[in-house]
Computed example of a mutant assay.
Amino acid sequence: MMQVISTKSGATTKECPPTGKLIILTGPSGVGKGTLMRSLLQRHPQLHYSVSVTTRSPRPGETNGKDYYFVSRREFEELVAAGELLEWAEFAGNYYGTPREAVMNQIRSGKRVVLEIELKGARQIHTCYPSALSIFILPPSMSELEKRIRGRAQDSDEAIARRLRCAQEEINAADEFDIQIVNDDFESALNSIEAAILS
């Protein structure tokens, strides 16, 4: 696998002035972080959502440039080589990454920027930007998580098993994050995220 690109130099107050804020939202696949994010943005349009780049295929209803920027593996690797991603990781056979300049411009302008990213990417951001607020979304249980993933009817049994193995590893890392929120009751989880981000 390619080497991770990160920006430890020059990634402090010069790029992240105190007027803006970087917020990381992560959790295992199927935990509901995407649905929580959409509801959060509907309630608080002043928040800036950073659209990630991915090599995976669009799911039904997803729009290029709104949900993700969908690119080929070659295009993604060119972005990595050019240093144009703030963070990136490979997950379930696909690459995911965050465009650097779009995020930094929003933070410089004083916006609260929310990244919905995978664990590996969240760790990269935390290393480069320790002042970022990090939130981990937990499922009520592994059995409930499996039920949610199966309910999407988008993955084979093999892919589901792989996602669940990955999920357990990610859940084991939840203590690395500033705040852990269990998505048992949707409204309660959303209110907890609001309180953390807007306080």
Score class of each variant (00 low, 15 high):
77 E>V: 06
77 E>L: 15
78 E>N: 08
78 E>S: 10
80 V>P: 00
81 A>L: 12
82 A>R: 14
83 G>S: 10
84 E>K: 15
84 E>Q: 14
84 E>C: 11
85 L>Q: 03
85 L>C: 04
87 E>M: 14
87 E>T: 11
88 W>E: 11
89 A>E: 15
90 E>L: 05
91 F>P: 01
91 F>Y: 11
92 A>Q: 15
94 N>F: 13
95 Y>K: 05
95 Y>N: 03
96 Y>S: 03
96 Y>H: 12
96 Y>D: 05
98 T>Q: 08
98 T>V: 15
98 T>A: 11
99 P>L: 07
100 R>G: 02
102 A>N: 09
102 A>G: 08
103 V>W: 03
103 V>A: 09
104 M>C: 10
106 Q>W: 05
106 Q>R: 13
107 I>Q: 02
107 I>G: 01
108 R>Y: 08
108 R>H: 13
108 R>I: 06
109 S>Q: 13
109 S>G: 09
109 S>I: 01
110 G>S: 08
110 G>T: 06
110 G>Q: 08
110 G>V: 07
110 G>K: 07
111 K>W: 04
112 R>C: 11
112 R>A: 12
112 R>I: 13
112 R>G: 07
113 V>Y: 00
113 V>P: 03
114 V>N: 01
114 V>P: 00
115 L>G: 01
115 L>E: 01
116 E>T: 14
116 E>R: 04
116 E>A: 12
116 E>K: 09
117 I>E: 00
119 L>H: 07
119 L>K: 02
120 K>H: 10
121 G>I: 04
121 G>D: 03
122 A>P: 00
123 R>K: 15
124 Q>E: 11
125 I>Q: 01
126 H>D: 14
127 T>K: 14
127 T>L: 13
128 C>Q: 15
131 S>P: 03
132 A>V: 05
132 A>W: 03
132 A>P: 07
133 L>M: 12
133 L>N: 02
135 I>L: 06
136 F>P: 01
137 I>F: 04
138 L>K: 12
139 P>V: 06
139 P>F: 04
139 P>D: 05
139 P>G: 07
140 P>M: 05
140 P>I: 03
140 P>W: 04
141 S>Q: 09
142 M>A: 13
142 M>C: 07
142 M>D: 14
143 S>W: 09
143 S>M: 13
143 S>T: 13
144 E>W: 06
144 E>I: 11
145 L>G: 07
146 E>Y: 05
147 K>P: 02
148 R>Y: 06
149 I>L: 10
150 R>G: 04
151 G>C: 06
152 R>V: 09
152 R>Q: 11
153 A>L: 11
154 Q>A: 10
154 Q>R: 15
154 Q>F: 14
155 D>M: 07
157 D>S: 15
158 E>F: 07
159 A>D: 11
159 A>T: 15
160 I>F: 09
161 A>V: 08
161 A>K: 14
161 A>D: 10
162 R>V: 08
164 L>V: 08
164 L>F: 06
167 A>P: 00
169 E>F: 02
169 E>W: 08
170 E>G: 02
170 E>C: 03
170 E>W: 00
171 I>K: 00
173 A>H: 10
174 A>W: 00
175 D>Q: 13
176 E>M: 11
176 E>V: 05
176 E>T: 06
177 F>C: 05
177 F>T: 03
178 D>C: 09
179 I>Q: 08
179 I>S: 00
179 I>L: 12
179 I>E: 07
180 Q>Y: 02
181 I>Y: 02
181 I>A: 02
181 I>V: 12
181 I>L: 04
181 I>S: 02
